[in-house]
Design a protein around this nucleic acid. Structure first.
Length: 321
DNA sequence: CGAATTTGACCAGCGC
DNA sequence: GCGCTGGTCAAATTCG
């Protein structure tokens, strides 16, 4: 406990080694990538799903190509964001392809965003009810899951929502326990799991499951504030002036790289005033060059959130040179 | 004192 | 069926 607090305090007052949310490029070695991706695969791997292809394809070389997607030579990611869903609704991304091949049945078709909020709530209540009786032969429908990797010493990153920890488990092949959190909002069934990479303990893997049905509460939480300058990503990537975080200060959840923003969970762009991004002033860059500026623009228009998420430069002129 | 966290127990799914 | 593992519950404990 005290350890955590110490860490948080130190995070709040002194910037630890990785206080800059971004690695320098030489901080990500191929082996580093592999370890992270392997670990992420483990999320699904034991179920035979794993995104093998996706992760495998993301070699260090891919990183460099990914960086080409951005106009400026961006710093390498300190965090890899990817859609992680159940194998059954797996969305497969191939960084080098121009298309998104999706076999998703739930993530795509069941997009809560397209449903009335009431319906979403009803569904979540159903899910809750299903939890209680725990009947056999009645598989609980799994919400799409999304995993984020963050370089941080803080396990539980403040993403603007309030979470209550309801469990902690030691996980196989990892010396670090996995923590289970649930959104404190009564009607909201969103869960998240937080665990550390066993190979690089500075990496925190956060897996979200479900969709927030409420706006992002604005909770001043100075305790784990990270210095605002972490939000500056070469100027253009620091745009996430989320209303959740009080206008882009104190980012404690850092998302320098988002693979295929389309797959962001809808709670990132909840229909509320809350911005697209729940993560406070998250740094977002979008690795997507396959969309034309007009496409991006229209997406942004369609989805409000993208305007928050996408650096304006991306929307306006996706490719220099 | 209420809220949040900790932690051991329990349950379900899966592979063998 | 059994054991392993992940996920959840809930009582106890701690914190603010």
């Amino acid at each position: 406990m005290d350890n955590k607090k110490d860490i948080q305090n130190s995070m709040a007052h002194t910037k630890e080694s990785s206080s800059s949310p971004f690695f320098s490029s030489d901080q990500i070695s191929p082996s580093f990538n592999n370890s992270i991706f392997d670990m992420a695969c483990e999320e699904q791997g034991d179920k035979g799903g794993c995104f093998g292809g996706f992760w495998d394809n993301l070699s260090a070389q891919d990183y460099s190509s990914i960086f080409d997607l951005l106009q400026q030579p961006p710093p390498p990611p300190s965090l890899v964001v990817s859609g992680v869903t159940e194998p059954s609704d797996m969305v497969v991304y191939t960084p080098n392809s121009t298309s998104i091949s999706s076999s998703s049945t739930e993530a795509a078709n069941d997009d809560p965003e397209t449903k009335p909020a009431e319906e979403v709530e009803q569904e979540q209540e159903k899910t809750k009810k299903q939890l209680k009786p725990k009947k056999k032969n009645q598989k609980r429908p799994r919400e799409p899951r999304y995993a984020f990797m963050t370089k941080s010493e803080i396990d539980h990153l403040d993403d603007g929502y309030r979470w209550r920890k309801y469990g902690q488990k030691a996980v196989k092949n990892s010396p670090f326990p996995r923590s289970y959190y649930r959104c404190t909002s009564a009607t909201c069934g969103v869960k998240k799991r937080v665990e550390r990479s066993c190979e690089d303990q500075s990496i925190v893997v956060t897996t979200y499951e479900g969709t927030h049905t409420h706006i992002c509460p604005i909770i001043p939480r100075g305790s784990i504030g990270i210095l605002p300058e972490t939000t500056t990503y070469g100027g253009i990537y620091g745009g996430g002036s989320s209303q959740c975080g009080g206008g882009g200060s104190a980012s404690s959840f850092i998302i320098p790289q988002i693979h295929h923003y389309q797959q962001l969970p809808s709670y990132f762009h909840n229909s509320s005033t809350s911005s697209a991004l729940s993560f406070r002033s998250a740094n977002v860059s979008v690795q997507e060059r396959h969309f034309s500026p007009s496409t991006l623009s229209s997406l942004a228009r369609d989805d409000g959130l993208l305007q928050d998420m996408l650096p304006s430069q991306v929307l306006k002129e996706p490719k220099k040179e």
